[in-house]
Amino acid sequence: MTADLKERPPRTPAEDDAFKNELVTLIPHLRAFARTLCGDAAAADDLAQDAMMKAWDARASFQMGTNMKAWTFMILRNQFYSDKRRSWRQTQLDQEAAERTLVAVDDPEAPIALDELRQGLAMLPAEQREALILVGAGGFAYEEAADICGCAVGTVKSRVSRARRALQGILEAGDYDRDGSAAGDAMRSILADAERLSTVR
């Protein structure tokens, strides 16, 4: 799924409207994906807005009827990494800031398990975290996630499976940066919450 830059026939206002309407429905998803990449909510919204405008500007190269969600996620991800390359010296600082923010922005009323899950995610290598988010939370098929990340399907599969194992290990060991919580508490609360959620639904 490379962005096809071939010129297509001029677009009609109706086509632009259809594109815009679909793009608008994707904004919440772009914000959520950006939040997982940036950590910092304000930086994430800047990234999501950039991606939205890039998608709008490139609408002539998008074929209506194909997967616009995957297409916009790919644009957002590329934007994120090209911003990163531009400020590669900042990368380490950004990572530290993201980890702090993942902790800091938490609602004190939020269930404890969510807090711990965020911290566990922050400890994963970026490519594993991204693969797990796309497949495990974003609802993408392995093939779509591979297109978004520009890698092979098998690579995505192995990243997702390594991420799942690592995350479970982190949560069970209590091996995240938190004081006063006994090892295994995170996993216990996640199991309890999952049970509660599944009975509610």
């Binding site: 914000r31 969510l114 965020r118 495990g136 479970q168 996640i190 999952a194």
Partner: peptide
Amino acid sequence: RQQAIGVRLRQMFDDVVKEPV
């Protein structure tokens, strides 16, 4: 346990999706 983590992960993502734009 993996299912439980999956439920949480989706919830974390959906919480942001549900925020007003």
